[in-house]
Amino acid sequence: MNSFSYVRPDEIDVAIDDLSVHHAAKFIAGGTNLLDLMKENVERPARLVDINRLPLQTIDDTAEGGLRLGALVTNADTAYNEQVEKRYPLLSQAILAGASPQLRNMATNGGNLFQRTRCYYFYDTDMPCNKRKPGSGCGAINGYNRIHAILGTSDSCIATHPSDMCVALRALDAVVHVSGRLGERTIPMADFHRLPGNTPQYDNTVQPGELVTAIELPAKGFADHYAYLKLRDRASYAFALVSVAVGLDINNDGTITEARIALGGVAHKPWRRPESEEQLVGQSASKEVFQLVADSIIDGAKGYGHNTFKVELARRAIVRALMQASKLEKIS
């Protein structure tokens, strides 16, 4: 871990200003990922701006009938929030599928968006990694890549985004509120994380000096038909090999009127293909239909050796999650 200075402002503006004027400064909230990476010398901030005292600690109703999750509310408090549990059980379930109770008690909603990849080569400073050290190469493409991406990859990077929460947020079409010196703006989840291209060092589209203040959930929560399915190498406390968040609207005659399907563990960002989801609209739930949609979502997926199994696993996981969400299959 390198040497750094530390401040703990009480006001949002002060925090943003501080970050902007100091070289290599970073916000710290829960610290669960940043401190981990600092101990590995992967992150080396010269200054930490502790934002835990900023007034971003509440979950509130929005005028549009949705919910606004303060950036500093912990993952645990969010997952167990009565309104979230009732109206957005998909989000609750996704959060509770991630990490451990201790980590969820520390990690914040804002911080979760900024989780960095679990790529072995990114974590090991003796190894090449274009994300950690642009231009140094990618160790994973021809190396050990069991946990790596099969969609949206580039020749520079095949890392995945490791969050569970973000997969649900993507399915729910959440919107991220950020604040910077130039004012406030919103970023739809679809545009928040990015694909690696030839600049894998950038995980997301937040600009330097901007602070995430809240995550807004639109009114529609898919509380009647949803599923979060996570597949991993042990029953708990492991990152997803593949995860699927599904939200369905099904009318009284059993016709699907809207479908959201987001994948985790397969790409540099939570993966969605809206045109595939469209194929479900107007159909009644059936395994055959779901299989066609699954094929369409993972169309173009490419394995790199150790992770090639993910292509088939993702296909099957999508079908299963759709079966569960449509209640054709019980969640076991």
Binding site: R118, Y120, Y121, Y123, D124, D126, M127, G139, N142, G143, Y144, R146, I147, D233, R234, A235, S236, Y237, A238, F239
Partner: peptide, 25 residues
């Protein structure tokens, strides 16, 4: 413990990636 033989190193050198049974298993 998975070694990348090109570099000769065990790559999953952490308790997050070297999986041992947890309570739920």
């Amino acid at each position: 413990s998975v070694m990348d033989h090109q570099v000769g190193r065990f790559m999953n050198h952490s308790l997050a990636e070297y999986h041992v049974a947890v309570n739920a298993d």
